[in-house]
Nucleic acid binder design. Structure first.
Lengths: 112, 112
DNA sequence: CACCTATATATCGTCCGGCTATACATAGAG
DNA sequence: CTCTATGTATAGCCGGACGATATATAGGTG
């Protein structure tokens, strides 16, 4: 029940979250997973079955690009954001802010 | 493209928005649609094909209840929130606030 | 050695739900 | 009489999050 809520919340903001993590510096999947979990205080547990297909999708949309590399330890697929990805991120951040404001105004004083 | 983003954003927050609108005073579908559109400054255009199935779902979950009434003009289906709906609303408002804070922290200074 | 856990990526199938398209009905304006 | 706004409803499509599952390796423990 409560889990389902988070699942749906993710749908609109997951691209945004992953893009913003990758935008900082190159990341690989498992690290992104940990970063988001940490940043959310353990609230957002991003399953591998969600994360990897998502990364593939973002790459197919040319928002990120990848290369395999073993020189920093284990064999990992590193992702970095593209110029197109940066543009998209900017747009989505603005949309998120507007949207969040709209929801806040609707729920009004109900915050408890 | 941009529309798709809003579509997914809705998934996690639409129940919440509709419940919070109905929580104020009894509403009928078409009015809810207008209220949300207005509150979002025209950004959220809730299609009828989204709204009515949603209302049916909320009613089947006993979060709202309905009755037909013509005394205030045209024949309309009025919805009011139930006790169960109020409880759910409280929970979802809290979840939304936590989640929004999490996303904000991830996107950090990127706000433009 | 065997076993276990953490690390690391990948894919299949299911399920959910928002949206387009379509339908139907009435009130008011032109 | 037509056109637009109002008002509700449903069928079917489709994208995407997720559980389950698979595979591989590094490091620690008994």
């Amino acid at each position: 029940m409560s889990e389902k809520f988070q699942r749906d919340l993710l749908r609109g903001s997951l691209d945004l979250m992953v893009l913003s993590v990758v935008a900082g510096e190159p990341q690989y999947g498992y690290l992104i997973q940990k970063r988001i979990n940490l940043a959310s205080d353990g609230q957002v547990k991003l399953p591998a079955g969600t994360l990897y297909p998502l990364l593939h999708r973002l790459e197919s949309e040319k928002l990120i690009r990848s290369k395999w590399d073993s020189s920093t330890g284990r064999k990992r697929k590193w992702y970095e954001i593209t110029a197109k990805g940066k543009k998209r991120l900017t747009v989505q951040v603005n949309q998120w802010n507007q949207y969040a404001e709209c929801v806040s105004s609707l729920i009004g004083g109900l915050t408890s």
